[in-house]
Every structure is written in C-alpha cells, then in structure tokens.
Design a protein around this nucleic acid. Structure first.
Lengths: 220, 220
DNA sequence: GCTTGACTACCTATTAGTAGGTAGATATAG
DNA sequence: CTATATCTACCTACTAATAGGTAGTCAAGC
C-alpha cells in the first residue's frame, strides 16, 4: 500500500525464472515486497511485521515460506544477482575474432538497461549498494553473495571495456579494470546521493560524465 | 573493546570544538563510540545497549546525555559535517585575482585528506554514505543535515574545480558542477565497494582514475 | 487422505525510553 | 563553619512495543 508504486516500478527486475526451485505465488509476492522495502530502507529496517502488514497476511505465514529472515534475504539476493547477470549480453558468444564493435556497445547497453530506470524511482537505490552500507551486520552467506557480485560485475565490465577499446568504440585512460572500478563506484555513489538528495539530475550528470569519457566526446 | 581499534583510527576526526555548546567528557565518548559503530553497521543496527556495553555504563546514563537516539544522531552528524567543512581550505581568502594555482591544489588536498585514510579502515565507509543508504528510515532532522551535506560538498568542490581549471592546474570534461558530481559519487561508491569486498586496492584504483583525469595524465 | 498454505496463540530477546533514587561535588546562607 | 540546597552523573528497575521465531490447528484441493 504505502510503497505499491515501487512494486510496479521495479516489477520487471523481479522474475524468478533463474532460481533452481521456482517460488510459489505467495513466496514470490513476499520476496518482491521484501526486495522493494529493502531497496528503500535497508535490511535491518524491514521486519516480518512490515511485510505482513503490506501483504495482508500474518508473520507466521511468512515464516512458512521463509523460515528465517536470512533465508529470505539470500533468496532475494540470489534472484537479483542471477537476473542481473542474465541480462548481461554474453560477449564471448561465437568466435572472439568475429566480435564486431557493435557487440561491445550492445553489451554495455544491456548492462546499463536495469540501472537507468532507477533515476526516477524516489528513495530507491541499488539493492547491493544498500546492503553494502551495512555489510558487517549481515550473515556470512549474504555477505558472500554481496562481495562476489561486486567482483563479478567489475570483471565482466572490464572485459567489455577492454574489448571495446581494442575495437575502437570505447575510450578511457588506464587499465580496463581500474576504469571498471571507477564506473561501478560512480554508479553506486550516484544512486546513493540521488536517493539522499532527491535529485535525479545528479544521476544524469554522473552518467553523462562517464559516457562522455567512454564514447570519447568533449575531452579537454 | 571489540572496535577499539576504530576509535583510535578515526579519533582525529572527532574533535568537537565546532559545536555551539561543547560536549562533556562522557558525552563526547558516547558520541565517538556511536559514530564509529554507525560507520560500520549503520544507524539502525546500533542500539543504546551496544553503546552501554562498549562504554561500560548503563543505557540510562546514555539517555541522561542524549535523551533520544535521534538527538544523538543529530549531534554526531552535525559535528562530523562541521569538522569536515572546517577542514576545507577557504579558497575565497584574499583577493580572487591573487589566487595562485597552488591554492586550488591545496584546497583539493584538504578535501582529500580525511578521505584517504578510510582506505585502510576495515569495514568503515563515510558516515554520510552509510546513512544515505537508509535515508528513508531517518528522522526529518537528520535527513536534512544529510541532504544538505551532499549538496554543499558538491558546490564547494565544483568551485575548486572551476577555479583550478581556469588557473590551468586541473583538467576535466564538461562543467565543473557535473565533474564534482562524478567525483563525490565515485568516492562514495568506492568506499562502499571497498567495505563490501574488503579490497583497499579498489579504493586506490578509483582515486588514481579520478586524479589521472584531474591532473591531466594518461589521457587517451 | 495427504499436501499446501494459511491461521491463532504463544515465546524469548531486544528495542527505545522512563521513573525514581543516590553518591559526591559545589554553592550558599545563617 | 556548618547546615542546606542544588547540580552532576551515574545507578537500579521498570515499561510498552517490536523483533524474529515456534507449536499446533484447520480448511481447501488434488
């Protein structure tokens, strides 16, 4: 109710086709609601009571689907990671020699596709960013998913950047790895500051700066 | 006890000479401990009980100094903001015409001085970044301090960047404001990812990328 | 008739916060 | 100089609310 607009906004990212054992209808609703609330408030400020109120069921019913909060968190995080990684184009498809410049631009766009809409979601930032802020309070299982996501994201992005620079479509100083670190950091920070200041323009300006470099326009 | 190493690490940033009515010895210890714990765990995961255990006093004694958690938070945040802003060199000092190129480099370094040591503080990131992640759960008072800090930081940094580029010591594409947005975002994100992955190298790489641009080395 | 998915009713621990008291320092008035 | 009052900084003991979680019940549907 209070946050139903967010459910709609982020619904596209909530399919669970990637999970080993797919969630039931109710379990998926619980996971969706939990994810949306966590992206706004953080893990520790979302309780089973909040979820129960939002969904119109009892907390015990939520425990039936997700015995512990840690399991609920791990489910949501795994699903989010898998969906995100599935969305990335596989730039290794086919012979590396046959990789056209366009494939790198397409890979980059598939990376940015789920990020751009966050611009207009009030109070929302990246799920992984929010959890990272309170990393030390999370259970080891969730910490592991979190840390590996950041690493995998950076590795994948560095590969795209490297291939794209070799193909002449991307431009940046230094190594592809350190430029990927800059990229992921800047995007995380931009979402965080946009959320705290309520200014979507901040988000625009950061992406413009990054893409200005990457596409090699406006360099002094 | 558990986090005493952090108290030592961050102690330099905890002077309270800027507060209108200075804190008593005990109040300052409470504020210091609270700040250190929040920078690691976030606002919602630090309780009066945690503070009491850490300090060896009762929770009621903490309530004596800080009646509510919101007041404690506001005190710590105000002090942090004032100390940070006081650390920034005033680039408007003297005649604007007499501003040498060095003054901008010095201003930039005074900005970076408190940020660089975070590299080696395990599990720690910027106090404002951590709070920003759970912005919606904070009381309006604290939200206001938070949002204004991000804005003021960006405005100040943009002024330094603009002056420095005009003076020929800084280089960057686009407006000084949007480059300042990139800079603050990248630093926030770098601290967050460093914290979640436990890799200080990530922090190094991001700063190297940013300063490579700013100082105009290694451009492609 | 067993599985599913919800329920009521509880439990224990922790949360922020309050009430009221006390030891010791300091100030003040007779 | 002493009796009284006030203040500081802590204490014990409590509260109401919320936290995550458990045990056992019950109805519907394949």
């Amino acid at each position: 109710m209070a946050n139903s607009h967010i459910s709609e906004q982020a619904s596209t990212a909530l399919s669970d086709k990637s999970l080993c054992c797919p969630l039931s209808d109710t379990a998926r609703k619980i996971a969706d609601t939990f994810q949306n609330l966590v992206m706004v408030r953080g893990f520790n400020a979302v309780s089973y009571g909040d979820l129960a109120k939002e969904l119109g069921i009892r907390t015990a019913s939520i425990h039936y689907h997700f015995p512990t909060k840690a399991e609920l968190g791990a489910t949501v995080l795994t699903r989010y990671r898998d969906n995100t990684m599935n969305a990335w184009q596989d730039i290794d498809a086919g012979d590396p020699e046959s990789n056209t410049p366009e494939i790198y631009k397409k890979a980059y766009e598939s990376f940015m596709a789920p990020i751009r809409p966050v611009r207009d979601m009030q109070g929302v930032s990246c799920l992984f960013g929010v959890l990272g802020a309170t990393y030390e309070t999370l259970c080891p299982n969730i910490q592991g998913i979190l840390a590996s996501f950041f690493v995998e994201q950076e590795v994948w992005l560095a590969r795209v950047f490297k291939g794209g620079r070799d193909a002449g479509v991307f431009h940046f100083p230094g190594t592809a790895t350190s430029f990927a670190k800059l990229y992921t950091s800047a995007l995380q920070g931009a979402m965080l500051i946009k959320k705290s200041t309520g200014k979507p323009e901040h988000f625009d300006a950061v992406i413009e700066q990054l893409e200005g470099m990457l596409f090699g326009v406006g360099r002094t």
